[in-house]
């Protein structure tokens, strides 16, 4: 404990350095002061496990992967150095249950919906996800096409509790009831065992599953964001009424304005182009 004052002096110097470097960081740094769960630290939560391409190798501390990179960029704009960011893990349930949170904000592809917004707070969206249809090569050989009429005849699966499910039910309206699973691993397992033909994911996840998890996975097509009634937008989740929301929004606005958010997206989610659009 003896070196504690030295350490805080060092952090102070880092923060001062950042403040000197950019004017906006100064405003944001001051903004977040005293509003975080642990003073001088920013506690960020993500899923357990966190999946590629959102977080690479389930190690958000490395800052690799789209969400890990966004988290560090937001932290930077808010005036937190890389070593002042702490990671915790949380499930979806933990994140939306009433009561105190153990994180300042949580990012694991939480889609912003009005119902969820009643219980927790969301930041401005940091990504608009197109929904994509994942199938195996056998279905394509059997004649599945990226057209609604063709999709109706497939046996569908989805991860229960994602916003993909309403899209399946309301937009595709399959002929038989979809089967539902706990997570992506179970959905792909059901595809492997031939129990379902197709599943709906956000595009980056679908691309990852097709390329890495399934031997013969194909992303059949994507629904453009305006096709779905409410486009799926990911937001940073915070406890209801968290005063930090203003600072987080400000940081995200700044990232959008100076083009760095687009740059991060291009770096980690570049494959998203080139998938046919569903007619």
């Amino acid at each position: 404990m003896t070196n504690f004052p030295l350490k805080s002096l060092f952090f102070g110097a880092v923060v001062m350095g950042l403040v000197a470097a950019t004017g906006s960081a100064q405003a944001a740094g001051a903004c977040a002061e005293g509003k975080t769960i642990e003073a001088g630290k920013l506690t960020i939560a993500t899923g357990n496990p966190a999946y590629y391409p959102w977080v690479v190798d389930d190690k958000p501390e490395d800052g690799k992967g789209f969400e890990a990179a966004v988290a560090y960029a937001v932290a930077d704009k808010m005036g937190f150095a890389k070593d002042e960011v702490m990671w915790v893990r949380s499930s979806f349930d933990e994140a939306i249950q009433p009561g105190a949170k153990n994180f300042d904000f949580n990012l694991q592809q939480f889609s912003i919906t009005p119902e969820r917004d009643k219980v927790v707070d969301f930041s401005e969206p940091y990504y608009s996800a197109a929904m994509a249809v994942l199938v195996r090569k056998g279905s394509v050989d059997a004649g599945a096409k990226p057209e609604l009429a063709s999709l109706k005849g497939l046996k569908w699966g989805a991860v229960a509790g994602t916003t993909g499910l309403p899209v399946v039910l309301d937009l595709i309206k399959p002929n038989s009831d979809p089967l539902l699973y706990d997570d992506n691993a179970n959905v792909t397992e059901a595809m492997k065992s031939g129990q379902i033909d197709a599943a709906l994911f956000d595009l980056p996840t679908a691309l990852y599953l097709a390329a890495v998890v399934l031997d013969d996975g194909v992303v059949l097509g994507q629904f453009p964001a305006d096709r779905t009634e409410k486009p799926d937008q990911f937001g940073l989740l915070m406890a209801d009424g968290n005063p930090l929301k203003a600072c987080v929004d400000e940081a995200l606005e700044a990232l959008k304005a100076d083009g760095s958010l687009a740059k991060i997206e291009a770096e980690w989610l570049q494959e998203a182009t080139g998938v046919p659009v569903i007619k």
Partner: peptide, 8 residues
Amino acid sequence: GVYKSLLA
């Protein structure tokens, strides 16, 4: 579970 997630 589906309702829980959709309605939070």
